[in-house]
């Protein structure tokens, strides 16, 4: 069997493409859900950690530390396989979205915190001196500047979340990787796996490039 027949077999590719596309749809929805929820949760955690009342601040710190310490795969398996024993049976999609966004929120929180702390003190003072409310100080003055500062690490983190969606195949989630493995088994040919790998790269490579561009632009502005 030639290299092309084995790894880049056109017939197999065409046959298994519908399966891959259905997997890709799930991977993309899972990735988007987890990224959006993770960012929202991360922003909330960062604000609680910086400005919340003492008990909430402690809870935010504990959350951020614990969810950065637990391996994502372990969390996913616990949510999907252990929670049913506590009477909580979740679908693979819900379990994977939860695990991914819980962990992403912890990392995003630290990134947002660094961004908020990176806004010059004078900006906070000017906003306070003008009489702006705490909410307006954040929404109008601090966050727009903080978010701009953290676009590169936030994009980087989002890429990681997207890549980690592949772990969901462990909990029987029919995502891109799972469907590719399935297709490989059906066709007794690794072409679907190679195709899946290429699809991941094609989706994420532009984003990886973008991070580099953002970082250079930010560094140029800082000078």
């Amino acid at each position: 069997m030639s290299f092309f027949d084995a790894f880049l077999n056109w017939d197999v590719f065409v046959q298994t493409l519908p399966l891959l596309v259905s997997g890709l749809t799930i991977t993309i929805s899972l990735g988007l859900c987890a990224i959006i929820l993770g960012l929202a949760g991360g922003l909330l955690l960062a604000l609680l950690r910086l400005y919340g009342p003492a008990p909430l601040r402690q809870i935010a710190i504990a959350y951020i530390d614990i969810f950065r310490a637990i391996p994502l795969l372990v969390l996913l398996v616990v949510i999907y396989y252990a929670l049913p024993f506590a009477g909580l049976r979740l679908t693979p999609f819900t379990s994977a979205t939860m695990a991914l966004s819980f962990v992403s929120a912890a990392y995003s929180a630290e990134i947002f915190r660094a961004g908020i702390e990176g806004v010059p003190k004078g900006q906070f003072e000017a906003a306070r001196a003008l009489g702006l409310s705490a909410y307006r100080r954040m929404s109008d003055i601090i966050l727009p500047q903080a978010v701009k500062l953290v676009i590169p690490p936030i994009t980087s983190n989002s890429i990681n979340v997207f890549k980690d969606t592949a772990l969901a195949s462990v909990v029987a989630m029919p995502d891109l990787l799972k469907q590719a493995t399935q297709a490989q088994a059906l066709s007794a040919n690794p072409t679907p796996l190679i195709s899946a790998a290429l699809i991941y790269i094609a989706l994420l490579l532009p984003l990886v490039r973008l991070v580099g561009i953002f970082e250079r632009r930010l560094a140029a502005k800082g000078r």
Binding site: P120, G122, Q123, E125, A126, A129, L130, I141, Q145, K148
Partner: peptide, 12 residues
């Protein structure tokens, strides 16, 4: 009204 040494205008 306060005017600061380092201006503290909102850059965005």
């Amino acid at each position: 009204g306060m005017v600061f040494q380092s201006f503290n205008l909102f850059p965005h």
